[in-house]
């Protein structure tokens, strides 16, 4: 059937293929761009807030997002050096 159509109707239409490829690709890229921007903003702001009180190594602040079908998990992992707590206690007394 396809061959017959090609014989009489010229080439098969390629535009629908282009359209579908684009829709799939852009859905993926938009999601990724949006997510990475949001995570970077969150990371910067969390780092800012915590740094007001504790000296942090910026590389030790990790913000991750796991996207699930119904809920997503936002994971914030901050490594705090041990020396800090002592100095905080000194400051409190």
């Amino acid at each position: 059937m396809m061959n017959l159509m090609r014989l009489f109707g010229g080439r098969a239409a390629s535009a629908p293929v282009a359209r579908e490829r684009l829709q799939i690709l852009l859905a993926h890229e938009r999601g990724r761009n949006g997510a990475s921007d949001l995570l970077e903003v969150l990371r910067a702001e969390i780092l800012g807030v915590v740094s007001k009180h504790i000296d942090l190594d910026p590389d030790k602040v990790v913000v991750r997002m796991d996207r699930g079908k119904f809920v997503s998990m936002l994971e914030v992992d901050i490594e705090v050096p041990n020396g800090v707590q002592r100095s905080m206690m000194v400051a409190a007394t």
Partner: peptide
């Protein structure tokens, strides 16, 4: 060409 399905149509582009 768009009418023959060889090129993305205006509607395709606007939808995307």
């Amino acid at each position: 060409r768009a009418a023959r399905g060889e090129m993305l149509s205006i509607d395709d582009i606007l939808e995307i």
